[in-house]
Each structure stands twice: as structure tokens, then as C-alpha cells.
Amino acid sequence: MTTASESQSRPGDQGINVAKVTANDVNVYYGDKHALKGVNLAIQANEVTALIGPSGCGKSTFLRCINRMNDLIEGARVTGTITLDRQNIYDRDLDVVQLRARVGMVFQKPNPFPKSIYDNVAYGPRLHGLAHSAADLEEVVITSLERAGLYAEVKDRLDEPGTGLSGGQQQRLCIARAIAVSPEVILMDEPCSALDPIATAKVEELIDELRENFTIVIVTHSMQQAARVSQRTAFFHLGELIEVGNTEQIFTNPQHKLTQGYITGRFG
């Protein structure tokens, strides 16, 4: 079993073009429903990969496979393999808890815990024993808040409840909470769909900055957003991966008819 420390101390991979996450023939069934059909996709490190497609196309389902959140849905069944640094995350002896520490997640609706801002960010490091002292922990919390671009706004009220922040601030708090665990991959499930345009712009800016240190996979229903923040884009339709490529190429010169139709707004 690969422990977290081993994989962390492997910066050499960044140079070579080795995929961080690889999906091989991934199928998902919800009961009788075949929700994801034979998806093959490689996600590169330190890039933002956008998953787009009409609603119900399986993009969120695929995202949730990468940190096995689908395990939680009753009746869901996943076949095929997904590897993280060449290790299959659906291996029997892989600890799903450790997986989720390495693959963080930001949800559609901001979901801070009904606790203080500080405790929200500190929860992950405490959970995984990442800080040795109170001072250590405080440093982690502050750095994470800074990286999420939220520190300046909340530094005087760290002990106030996180639920009292505005929607955009809450979502950035959730991002700070996710990066406080220093994951390798961050999954974002339509992180801006509940936010106003100004807050959206801030989060998008943040995503672009985070690319430096993290591998990001983002599901979005807005093509403009995909174009703005991502380097690679994958287009899903009715549970199938139709096309994947550089964002620029997908948006300017899509190869597949369905992609073309979706991009130009003929359906979706």
C-alpha cells in the first residue's frame, strides 16, 4: 500500500507527462440504470480539467468516482479501474479515507460545517494528524485561508461561525478547508453554480492560482467557465465520454458532431 508520504515525496513526476489520474473503462450503474459507459480518460497533473455536457450526462458521476463518493449511494456499482499515481483506487485494500485525504472535494452548494471559520479549516488537519502543535495548526489554517484568498476578509473573525459568511466567501472557505489537508487532486462539482457573478469571478481566479500546486478536476455547466479556467476539457453525453482535448481545441475545433452541437448551443 502506498502511504501518503511516499506519494507526496515524488515531485519528479511533474516534469514527465504522466497522468495523475487515469480512468480505464469505467462503468457506473445505479441499480438498473447504466449511468456511465466505458469511460477512458487521463487527467494530467497541475492542470485544470473541465468536465462539460448536458445535465444527466454523467459528468458529476464520473467526478464522484475519483474519490469514491459514489460508494455512499445505495445501489451504485462501479466497474473498471481508476488509478491515482498508477495505483487502483478501487483496490480492496485501499483505505477510502486515505484516498479522500489525497483527493479533496468542493461541492456544488457551499457546505461549511456549523462551526467557527477556524474549526472548519482546522478540521481536516486535525482529522489526519497533520499538525503537531496548536501553533502548527494555526499556521496551516492561516496559509490555507490565504491561498483561498479569504484570509484578509475573515482574519478578525476566525471564531465566528462559517455559516455566517456570504455565499462566495463560504465557497472559498470550503476550498480553504479542502486544501488545508494538502490533497494532490481537488474535485470541484459545479463550485460556482450557487454564486453571483462577482463571487464566481473570484473563485475562478482562485482556481487558476491553485493549478500551480494541485491537480484540479471541475464539473461545470457553463461553457464560458470551462473555457476560462481549464486547460483540458472533456465532453460527456448520455453517460459516454464523447471527446477530450485541449480546451482551446475543443471550443474552436471540436471533432465530434455532438460536441459541436453542444458548444454552439444547439442542445443542452
Binding site: 455512499l72 479515507v97 472535494m105 461541492f107 452548494k109 457546505n111 460545517f113 489537508v181
Partner: peptide
């Protein structure tokens, strides 16, 4: 969503319940 948030951070089910 409280449960999802905790699990997404790598809490186990029991930790999610207890915390």
C-alpha cells in the same frame, strides 16, 4: 450535505457521525 462535506475531507463514517 454535512455528511458529504465531512466524508469529502476524508473523515470515516464513524468520524463523520461522531464529529
Amino acid at each position: 450535505w454535512i455528511r458529504e462535506a465531512a466524508l469529502g475531507l476524508g473523515a470515516s463514517r464513524l468520524q463523520m457521525v461522531a464529529h
